[in-house]
């Protein structure tokens, strides 16, 4: 067989790589614009609100960074198992259980000094999230049960668990919504910026993202993870313990989702509140899919989605356009990015 046609030079290849992303975003926004116009809203004002709310005021920007923290952690919780070919759809439950773990330690040892309490609270969230993910991991390892199903079902279990903790174990009777009493002062994350407040979790997230990046791309364990995701059978034939790695990847994902819960408790809410997981799982998975599973791209995509998210809630507040609009736009971005792949293959 004869191969024709040399590969194109480097610069145009970079442009070719960027083009689909730009095109996907533009097309998705255009499609949403048509929809917004049909509903009878001002399209340009909607665009402006979505894209620029984050950058107009310091408060808007800090809001964006605060969304960025759990969103990035959730995105990594999805992406790391994905590198091994496993779908972790259980980040929501892992975050909730992580938050419960953090709250439990924060309440039980409320009097402990901060140097001890804060690390324990965060560690508890990491362990709780990891444990919650270890259950589907074990079911996969031992019985071959599809991890998509088991992780998602664990979410529904966690919804009841958080409700139980917040209404039966440490309820705050004054709150109108299932909420626990506050955690100890020492458990709170220190602030990086006072006004508007940005907590240390931001830095922590950056560190986690960098560590994950090094782990996946620079270590032999990361190599084995990637090989497992690329072809588990071949990886196994060449001596890589794929089943153990798959479980490990899920547990690692759970740990990061759990940390997201811990950071939300210790940095934002200072207590456990039902619903604190918000829609970060959805956003995290969408971020992971838009990044096409590339760990290096995840924080950037997560930041972009945080901007959209802050813009969407502003849009809902000021223009009465439902915020779900943005989720649909993001799902479309995923589809269009994948579509561009198909076009390039031809």
């Amino acid at each position: 067989m004869v191969v024709t046609q040399a590969s194109p030079p480097r610069l145009s290849r970079w442009l070719m790589a960027a083009l689909p992303y730009v095109a996907a975003v533009v097309i998705s926004f255009l499609a949403a614009g048509v929809f917004i116009a049909v509903m009878g809203f001002n399209v340009l004002r909607a665009y402006e609100t979505i894209l620029f709310t984050s950058f107009r005021t310091p408060n808007g920007f800090i809001q964006t960074l605060l969304k960025f923290v759990p969103l990035t952690l959730q995105a990594l919780a999805f992406t790391v198992p994905l590198a091994a070919g496993k779908f972790n759809i259980g980040g929501e439950g892992q975050m909730i259980v992580g938050a419960i773990g953090a709250t439990a330690v924060g309440i039980l040892f409320a009097g402990a000094p901060g140097v001890l309490l804060l690390p324990s609270v965060l560690l508890a969230s990491v362990l709780a999230g990891a444990l919650w993910a270890a259950i589907p991991g074990w079911l996969l390892y031992r019985f071959g049960i599809n991890e998509i199903l088991s992780t998602v079902l664990m979410n529904f279990v966690s919804f009841q668990l958080i409700n139980y903790v917040a209404t039966e174990i440490w309820p705050d009777p004054a709150a109108g919504h299932p909420t626990t009493v506050p955690i100890g002062e020492g458990a709170l994350l220190p602030l990086l910026i006072r006004r508007p407040p940005l907590h240390l979790g931001f830095l922590l997230t950056i560190v986690v993202a960098v560590l994950v990046y090094i782990y996946v791309t620079r270590t032999v364990y990361g190599y084995e993870l990637v090989a497992t995701g690329a072809n588990p059978r071949a990886a196994q034939v060449y001596g890589i313990p794929v089943q153990v790695l798959s479980v490990l990847a899920l547990v690692l994902g759970g740990a990061m989702a759990g940390l997201a819960g811990g950071v939300e408790v210790a940095g934002i809410h200072r207590r456990l509140i039902e619903g604190l997981q918000s829609n970060y799982l959805t956003l995290g998975i969408l971020a992971g899919l838009i990044a096409k599973g590339r760990v290096v791209a995840v924080p950037f995509v997560a930041f972009f989605l945080s901007v959209l998210e802050v813009g969407a809630s502003a849009m809902q507040r000021t223009m009465m356009i439902p915020g779900e609009m943005v989720i649909i736009v993001e799902a479309f971005i995923v589809l269009f990015i994948l579509l561009s792949e198909v076009i390039r293959r031809r």
């Binding site: 620079r218 032999v220 084995e224 090989a227």
Partner: peptide, 28 residues
Amino acid sequence: GYLPAASVAHNLILGYHRRPPYSRGSFL
């Protein structure tokens, strides 16, 4: 034996990735 979704380099060291010169300790 083939990792379609990984790079040519990934493919070439599969199974030998834990050996020098490809890796030193835990790092590639």
